[in-house]
Design a protein around this nucleic acid. Structure first.
Length: 445
RNA sequence: GUCCCCGUCGUCCAGUGGCCUAGGAUACCGGGCUUUCAAUCCGGAAACGGGGGUUCGAAUCCCCCCGGGGACACCA
């Protein structure tokens, strides 16, 4: 028989119910993101329920903006929740239970606050699914406030009441809570309630090996979106921090749901390695559908001010998708890709000063001819451009090794980039002809 | 300081007593390919924290030490 929900409904006993319980005192950082992910994966894997509970009992530090940020972060990560609660909505219930605790002699009032009494003797064992049995002597514990002077409940207390009322079966949370658990178990026992199962997942550390926190800089989940990281990549990366499935590194969301379970989770803390995230992002960039990636690229181009919306729309979806396919081979983030997308969009290109040595009189003469040929090109594929380029080089007695870099710089403004003929083909004859002609007029001095 | 957790390449993981001359990934170094940069391919360097046990045999089990982290709020 499962515990009754707040409303009194009964639930089947075997169904998994887990919750992610962030406090809205700031943005959601990747540590919290991973805790949310593990809970979500566990729920989805076991066909259970994923509950989101906003722990806003600290009314002076909680903000609505933070709540919105948390929602937005979870949505971006693709972690959908089945139920959502706000702890402040349940204050009456918390007070009711506090009274019950007092009636049972487990709580007492002092200085206006209500305190929970820790039994003098004995010890409490947390049967942790990951760490094993963790026993703490009661002498190590101190009585704790459960109701503040202003009658609002504190974390360790509200948490117990809500986990119980909401029928939580597994509490999956960060290892920093392991020390709180004996106190919470004592509260369950004082109330005659059965505690849920606990699984304390290892911490995520910053480069300095201390718990990842806001002071490590780029901690916010949404920052990663800002930096051009794909949610697929962050989810994949976070999942692999503390969890594994053999030697597999790349996982789709569906694979994660199918494979994730608590027994596969580690017990030691992990350092957040930005380099590996970037590698995974690159992997995911290359796996995305071209048109979807093209759309993401289009937004990013506008967002970064590389080109305006009208220009991007004029280029068209197909062209953006083709450009994205070229760009993703050497970009690790959407930001890098967007910042290199200019060559594929209409408009002039600025030539770098240090590349002017490429435009010798011979080269400029060849470029003039090439511009004409490209204007008349009837096969605007990579192959068509290659043929045209080779022919001009041949006619002018210039090695391709000399002409190609000049054309590249003329069209893209850079000496490096994707395969030249692919670049020309995606940019298209019109853009190529105009830029090659403009470069041919460059007077190097 | 006290209590709790943890300890395999720089980093993330594999490894659950013999398949380990310890495997994969990333990052790094060298080479091939290429108009360039990537990608890719080939090669390289790189770890079981230390000491005791247990065992025919230990990265795997036990103990001690050392190291790292976390918690010690009317924060969560």
């Amino acid at each position: 028989m499962g515990p009754p929900e707040a409303g009194g409904r009964m639930r089947p006993m075997n169904s998994v119910r887990v919750r992610f319980a962030p406090s809205p005192t700031g943005y959601l950082h990747v540590g919290g993101g991973r805790t949310a992910l593990f809970n979500w994966l566990y729920a989805r894997h076991h066909k259970g329920t994923f509950i989101l509970r906003i722990e806003d009992t600290d009314r002076t530090r909680s903000t609505d903006e933070a709540i919105e940020q948390i929602f937005a972060s979870l949505r971006w990560l693709g972690l959908d929740w089945d139920e959502v609660y706000r702890q402040t909505d349940r204050f009456d219930r918390h007070r009711e239970v506090a009274v019950e605790l007092t009636r049972r002699g487990a709580a007492y009032e002092k200085d206006g606050a209500l305190w929970f009494r820790i039994p003098r003797d004995g010890a409490t064992t947390v049967p942790d699914l990951l760490a094993g049995d963790v026993t703490v002597q009661h002498t190590e514990l101190k009585d704790l406030v459960i109701l503040r002077s202003d009658a609002t409940p504190t974390y360790n207390f509200a948490c117990v009441v809500d986990d119980h009322d909401m029928g939580i079966t597994h509490v999956i949370r960060g290892a920093e809570h392991l020390n709180n658990t004996p106190k919470q178990i004592l509260i369950y026992e004082a109330l005659g309630w059965t505690p849920p199962a606990f699984a304390h997942v290892p911490l995520i550390l910053g480069p300095d090996r201390t718990k990842l926190s806001k002071r490590h800089g780029a901690g916010s989940v949404l920052d990663y979106d800002q930096r051009g990281i794909l949610p697929e990549a962050l989810v994949n990366f976070l999942a692999r921090l503390g969890w594994s499935h053999g030697d597999q590194e790349v996982f789709t969301r569906d694979e994660l749901v199918a494979l994730f379970d608590l027994p596969g989770v580690n017990t030691s803390a992990a350092v957040f390695d930005e380099e590996k995230l970037l590698w995974l992002n690159h992997e995911w960039l290359r796996r995305l559908d071209p048109h979807r990636l093209g759309d993401l690229l289009a937004d990013r181009i506008v967002g970064r001010g590389v080109a305006d919306r009208a220009t991007v729309e004029a280029a068209g979806r197909d062209k953006l998708a083709r450009a994205a396919v070229l760009l993703r081979e050497r970009g690790k983030t959407l930001v890098e890709m967007a910042d290199r997308a200019r060559p594929y969009l209409p408009g002039p290109i600025a030539l770098p000063d240090d590349a002017r040595d490429l435009f010798t009189p011979d080269v400029r003469a060849a470029l003039r001819i090439l511009a004409v040929r490209v204007g008349e090109l009837d096969d605007p594929t990579a192959h068509g451009f290659e043929t045209a380029l080779r022919r001009v080089a041949d006619e002018r007695g210039l090695p391709l090794k000399t002409l190609a870099p000049a054309v590249r710089v003329a069209v893209t403004g850079s000496r490096v980039g994707p395969g030249l003929f692919d670049v020309l083909s995606v940019a298209g004859p019109e853009i190529v002809a105009a830029r090659v002609e403009a470069a041919a007029k460059e007077d190097r001095s």
